[in-house]
């Protein structure tokens, strides 16, 4: 691929990404009320999308011996428990990540 072809490819990706971000705002501009179904989806989608993103983060974990699946699940459990207890977002994320990093270095060495 020539440099020009690379630039065009990158431009196509930029355009595609921007399209997915701008489309809802073009279809439903601020002065027009979006259809009720769209408003409804806007309300119920976020919790569902975060479910999707959690699964997305875990899509490549492996549960074979030496895999990172079990330490990830344990670290998620730790994150959830700490968050239920303290309700501090930064603390929950930091501690959960620390648990994960510790586990893959000590207990679940690949």
């Amino acid at each position: 691929m020539t440099t020009l072809e690379q630039m065009i490819t990158i431009a196509a990706v930029i355009l595609g990404t921007a399209a997915t971000r701008f489309l809802p705002f073009i279809l439903f501009p601020a002065r027009r009320t979006p259809p009720r179904l769209v408003t409804y989806l806007g309300q119920v989608l976020p919790p569902a999308v975060f479910g999707l993103l959690v699964v997305y983060c875990l899509k490549d974990v492996s549960f074979s011996p030496g895999g990172n699946g079990l330490p990830a699940l344990i670290a998620i459990a730790a994150t959830v428990l700490l968050h239920l207890w303290k309700r501090n977002i930064l603390l929950s994320i930091a501690a959960g990540t620390a648990v994960y990093m510790l586990l893959i270095r000590t207990v679940f060495i690949a």
């Binding site: 990706v13 595609g16 990404t17 997915t20 701008f22 705002f25 769209v38 989806l41 976020p46």
Partner: peptide, 20 residues
């Protein structure tokens, strides 16, 4: 490349609807 981007980033449509 453009079509693949639309698929990979389609989740942004959800975000946009939530942020209207």
């Amino acid at each position: 490349a453009f079509l693949l981007t639309l698929l990979v980033n389609a989740r942004h449509l959800f975000y946009g609807i939530s942020m209207l």
